[in-house]
Simulated scan of single mutants.
Amino acid sequence: METIKVIFDTDPGVDDAMALLFLHRAPQVEIVGVTTTFGNGRIDTTTWNALYLTERFGIDAPVASGPAAPLVGPAPPPTDFVHGANGLGDIPLPATLRRKADPRPAHRFIIDTVRAHPGEITIVAVGRMTNLALALREDPAIAGLVREIVIMGGAFGHNGFHGNVTPVAEANIHGDPLAADEVFGGIWRITVVGLDVTQRTQMTTDYLRALARDGGEAGRFIWDITRFYVAFHHAAGVADMFVHDSSAVAYLIDPSLFTTRRGSIRVVTDGIATGQTMLKPDEYNFPPGPWDDRPSHAVCIDVDTARLLSLYRDTITAA
């Protein structure tokens, strides 16, 4: 089995924590670093949570902290009404940790790691893309050295899904739209796993209860942190919990779960539609426009939800 070296770019976050455990338990994955962004919490909160998760679950990978704000403007308020004040569903957390963050800023950690392992590093990015944009700005050549980037973000209108923080924008893209547009303009190989598929996949209470029963410490932890997250979904009128970040990990492990469409991607960076993601499909010809001379990337438009949920369950509960 080929080993996939992964940098996990994240803002833990309940669903981020679930995705990190998914990566950690996947036998074909080696986590070589965790880089943090603002988003589900402020940067000090998300970095603390990443250190806590790697320490608690024995994930032998450095954690590097990213900036506290997007490329332009202040950081939006953290989504504590979704993930809790501490980002992990308000479960009790320790007052101190043994682990410390890597001294390098997250984007420099990404550059150094990619250059140390050219053609080997996959980046799974499930938060704002500020770190990736800063890495691309500082060292544009790394785009040709990254094996692949899998992004949880965006919404392209498939299956009726357009946005979750505005009618047209998904949270990760909306949180730093300029960074997203710059990243989608890079020549690296990108697959986008957006709301088009993540909101089609849901975990029921019975499913989560079975994880708690059969998944050991990780399964019980998932149950505990999802109590707050599930309550948010219920308050929003959603019967079961959407599977956002873990869908990106599922794509990495088994791309056959998904149907994709290719094209160039632009992000609206200001105005009423800020954060909207738009695909120009490769199979269509249009008059000259702002999508021209942009690289083609893959966007997930459909998913086998039953197989994805089985993959997650089997990975977490494996001895």
Rank of each mutant, 00 (worst) to 15 (best):
A306R: 15
T46P: 00
P177I: 02
P177Q: 08
G194Q: 11
I190D: 05
V303L: 09
R147T: 03
D44S: 02
G215I: 10
R56V: 06
H234M: 05
D245A: 14
D304A: 04
I222K: 11
G84D: 06
K100H: 15
D16L: 00
I173Q: 10
V267I: 10
L71C: 00
R98Y: 15
F109L: 08
I149H: 04
T317E: 15
P103G: 10
A133T: 02
A171G: 13
V230S: 08
D16H: 12
G73T: 00
T35D: 04
R313A: 11
R294Y: 05
F286V: 12
V34W: 01
M1G: 11
T36R: 01
I4C: 11
H107D: 15
T198V: 12
A179I: 11
R189E: 11
Q276D: 12
P94S: 14
G271P: 14
V165W: 09
P70V: 00
R99F: 09
R213H: 11
A116H: 11
R262N: 08
S264K: 01
L195D: 10
G160D: 07
G84H: 04
I187S: 14
A179G: 10
D196E: 07
I142V: 08
G275Y: 04
L308I: 06
D16E: 07
D181Q: 11
P295A: 06
